[in-house]
Computed example of a mutant assay.
Amino acid sequence: MHASKLLIIAALLFGSGMAHAQKIGSVDTVFKFIGPDHKIVVEAYDDPKVKGVTCYVSRAKTGGIKGGLGLAEDKAEASISCHQVGPISFDKPLKQQEEVFNQSLSILFKKLRIVRMVDVQRNALIYLTYSDKLIEGSPQNSVTAVPVDRQISIPIK
């Protein structure tokens, strides 16, 4: 009974707050005899509050038996590149700094996060990706900027 409760709690934690990403592709980096290969995956995330901006994130995905079962902890390294893919518009004012996506990297407590910051002086949107853990995060990070046309004012809360 105790193990089933832990699995339910883990499933709730694992499933809550998941970012909705579109898988673009992947490449294998290490062959595994049993289970899926280790790989690098590329995913696209559309900013939910900024129409016309998409972020592309590449990250390591652990394979093998644990990876195939969803029990492996993926590495903290990730790279991000965000771009204007259509006309930029805002439905509501943005916070100066706000987490816009997160995705679990392990069954418990490790997440890949993407934070949007607004650079008002330069009229740009800055996106930072990093990973954290309940106890200890990683200083590894990646940053990208999307300049917004000066004719479009970025609304701030």
Rank of each mutant, 00 (worst) to 15 (best):
A3W: 11
L6D: 13
L6R: 12
L7Q: 00
L7W: 13
I8H: 12
I8W: 13
A10Q: 08
L13Q: 09
F14H: 13
F14W: 06
S16Q: 07
H20A: 14
H20T: 15
A21N: 10
A21V: 15
Q22P: 01
I24K: 13
I24P: 09
S26V: 01
S26W: 07
S26M: 11
D28Y: 01
F31W: 13
K32Q: 15
K32M: 15
F33Q: 14
F33E: 14
G35L: 11
P36V: 05
K39E: 15
K39L: 01
V41S: 04
E43G: 00
E43I: 01
Y45A: 03
Y45L: 01
D46M: 02
D47R: 02
K49Q: 09
G52N: 14
G52S: 13
V53P: 05
V53W: 02
T54C: 03
C55K: 08
S58R: 14
T62I: 00
T62M: 10
G63W: 01
G67S: 05
G67I: 00
G68D: 11
L69T: 02
L69H: 03
A72C: 09
E73T: 15
D74V: 08
K75Q: 10
K75I: 00
K75T: 11
E77R: 09
E77P: 00
A78V: 04
S79A: 11
I80D: 02
C82V: 09
Q84N: 06
P87A: 10
I88Y: 12
P93F: 05
Q96N: 08
Q97N: 04
E99L: 00
V100Y: 05
F101L: 05
N102D: 11
S106M: 07
I107E: 12
I107Y: 07
F109W: 14
L112H: 03
L112F: 00
R113C: 05
V115D: 12
V115S: 03
R116T: 03
M117E: 14
D119A: 14
V120C: 04
R122P: 04
R122T: 15
I126D: 05
I126M: 01
L128D: 12
T129I: 05
S131T: 10
D132V: 05
E136Q: 00
S138Q: 04
S138M: 02
P139Q: 06
P139G: 09
N141Y: 12
V143N: 01
T144I: 07
A145S: 07
D149M: 03
D149Q: 04
R150I: 04
R150E: 10
R150A: 13
Q151D: 07
I152E: 09
S153C: 02
S153V: 14
S153A: 08
S153G: 05
I154D: 15
P155M: 03
